[in-house]
Write a protein that binds this DNA or RNA. Structure first.
Length: 230
DNA sequence: GCATTAACACAGA
DNA sequence: TCTGTGTTAATGC
């Protein structure tokens, strides 16, 4: 994603989200702890999961390689397994808790479908969520094919700030950011490489970070880094 | 060469 | 105290 689009996203982002919290308020709630599996890939599931607290990762595990591919992370306010709408209730990703605690709502698929039919806003949001995921997967694949790991980290950072960054003067802040390991998973590289790249950017005064936040000092300069070789 | 893995030190929440 | 970060040597493709 180029920098102007990232900025545009920051500006256009909806402030008062279409309130899923109130829409799903009356449905039963479940809790889980770090390491718990909410549902296994290929298993049948009669509910849509709506995350109200904590963080969940969606993964595929490849036995042959003994390797886990992290497809993405869900945070509070997201519907996690919309793919079952299209696959006869079969989930395509394993969902695992990564935060200390998770709270989520379970909405029976039949009722969910009825709500989608009735509620234009929900209908649009479901559509947008699925398409957004599709685009993200596509971008990620292209990056893997076209760019080296350090570039992918920078590109991830630009997208990331576009999604959750807050403007502060000429800078942008990401509060409670992903860990380096999580960012590595999302940009298909190792956590050590993420650490190294971030420290390089810090040394160039393009970003600053601690465990609690990331500040993008210079988004334009970051965009330049995103395509720079070596 | 470029990047990941492993291993270890250590610091910050 | 434990998780996350910073660094480097060994290893792999």
């Amino acid at each position: 994603m180029n920098v102007s689009i990232a900025i545009e996203k920051l500006d256009n982002r909806r402030t008062g989200p279409f309130s899923l919290n109130s829409l799903f308020a009356d449905f039963p709630e479940r809790k889980a702890r770090k390491g718990d599996t909410l549902v296994q890939r290929n298993h049948s599931l009669g509910y849509i999961f709506y995350l109200t607290e904590g963080m969940v990762k969606s993964i595929n595990f490849y036995k042959e390689k003994n390797k886990e591919i992290v497809k993405g992370y869900f945070t509070a306010g997201e519907m996690m397994n919309l793919d079952i709408l299209n696959k006869n209730l079969e989930v395509s990703d394993t969902l695992k808790v990564t935060s200390a605690k998770v709270v989520y709502k379970i909405i029976p698929i039949k009722e969910f479908k009825a709500m989608v039919r009735q509620n234009q806003g929900l209908n649009q949001l479901v559509m947008a969520t699925i398409l957004d995921k599709l685009n993200k997967d596509n971008d990620r694949l292209h990056r893997l094919l076209l760019y080296k790991s350090r570039q992918r980290v920078v590109q991830f950072l630009i997208d990331y700030v576009g999604e959750v960054g807050q403007r502060v003067g000429y800078e942008h802040v990401i509060k409670k950011p992903f860990t380096h390991e999580e960012m590595g998973n999302l940009s298909d590289t190792s956590r050590q490489t993420v650490t190294t790249v971030l420290n390089e950017l810090k040394a160039k005064n393009i970003i600053h970070f601690t465990r609690r936040y990331i500040v993008i000092r210079n988004l334009e300069a970051l965009a330049v880094e995103a395509t720079k070789e070596g």
